[in-house]
Design a protein around this nucleic acid. Sequence first.
DNA 1: TGTCTAGG
DNA 2: ACGGTGTC
DNA 3: GACACCGTCTCCTAGACA
Length: 591
Amino acid sequence: MEVRDIASRLEEIGVLLELKGENPFKVRAYQSGARTLESLEEDLDILIEEERLNEVKGIGQALTEKIIELRTTGELPFYDKLRASIPDGLIEMLEIPGFGPKKIRKVHKALGVETIDALKEVCESGQIAELPGFGAKSAANILSGIENRIAYGKRHLWWDVEKVALPLLEGLRSLPEVDRAEVAGSFRRARETVGDLDFIVASSRPAPIMEWFTTRKNVVEVSAKGETKSSVRFDGGLQADLRVVPGDRFVFALHHFTGSKDHNVKMRQRALGLGLSLSEWGIFNKGDEPSEESGKAYDRPLAKKGIEEEADLFEALGLDFVPPERREGIDEIELAEKHKLEKPLPLDVLKGTFHNHTKASDGHNTLEEMSQAAADMGLEYIGIADHSKASFQANGLSEERLLEQVREIHALNKNRGKRAHLFAGSEVDILKDGSLDFEKDILKELDYCVLSVHGSMSGQSETEMTQRIIRAIETDTGCLKILGHPTGRLLLRREGYAVNVRKLIDAARDNGVLIELNANPWRMDMDWRYWAYAKEQGVPCVITPDAHRIDDLAFLRVGILTARKAGLTPVDVFNASSLDKIKSALKKAKA
DNA sequence: TGTCTAGG
DNA sequence: ACGGTGTC
DNA sequence: GACACCGTCTCCTAGACA
């Protein structure tokens, strides 16, 4: 089992133990074990080998055994038993907003409630309101929480959220009462999916802003409307929070609500080390408590003056500016301290792209339209990689149709005017046994090919799938190879197939194969978390939109944000190179 | 008031 | 459950 | 050196409820 999966398993054990009402310190032990595991500097296998795992702070006897078991066998009977000892209904109840482990336990113990339906009943019958700590209001809230929990818990594609966020942001900024406005949260960090939207506004007159926000057309529910904070839900289920803060606190609120949580914790720890205390309300000297009468956290003097931008806030803690995309609490603070944080990729870094479809397979535009659209975006070149014949469902091209397309591309390039240069490629299916859907005699006619798995995705073990793809990576195609969407995931729809991504990266390194950052909002594959390793191994990234129509070329923008998140720089990104350089690289790959 | 939940 | 302390 | 015992916080804040 992968290290990250082991960590989340430990995390889950923590949750389950909490539901069982176990010793809170035991619960915490699992949670902190999960944390340390995720940010482990050393290689887990080496630690296990040398029997040094229990020397790691926070991992003792019990956790060591469980981690080893998960790593070597992927199984953990302790977990299975624990899981089986808790009714599924109780775990489901965690999705009800405002209803956490303690309350679930209480209701379970006092009334024997084990399912959501039973919970509904005791709410309606009034039994729950009798319990100490509960009342009529609690019952009503639980009931509405049950009704909405599906929509509440749902996450949304970054791309879809942006369509809601930008018009709202623009609207907020155009209000006369608004001094500054930004979107914060995981959207600003460019996470591949977003739970809810957070808007932060600087103003001294919140009321009209709240009013404007809660009366937007697509608002279906106003779940909170206070003096400084409102929450609404849009059709489609997306929730958005608006917070209005005084101008001199804007930066602190923006930073706080941008997160991530882990990043915030690290920032606050750092502040403490400097004798300061950081919160969403400002940065204070450690001893300064809020004044007695108000008790409000912001009611103390700021320890630093003149913090107007986030960069000032980082500087106050002795750090370089950390771009929002990097704030995941991984290593960005250490890097910012040592002035080693990569400069964020500029939004115009790409000179061209690869992996796009046309009408010939399952796209909607012609070669000419695609190359014109690419030029309109300021790109010098665009690669076409329509599906191969095995992708029957996508109208994959036969050998004849592909060769015909290559001829057409050459003709268009001869007389291209202001259009972008076209590269001839193919998205070649990696078949079940790891062979490719086209033979070398066809592939060598291409400028490049994208190797992707589309069929027979289930039923293979991680080892088999990894071997399958490695075999494809090692195949001589007579042209440059790009590994396409390495895990095959479709966000919010289906998990990727089981595959050892690190081994794929190693194989790509050994065979001079590039890896795609497929910026199609459903994919975002390879995942940003793996790129640091790819970069370390010297495997270049190709940012592609996997466009099926000209509008999809815009996906490149979120691809760049994701590459920023991964800490990639222009030298790591293949298609940051100009047309001439790409041409010679492609030629070299054919030699 | 204390307890619980939620938020980053 | 972990880690430090004190005890034999 | 094994064992029992005991305290245990990654940070900081708001708001709902009884």
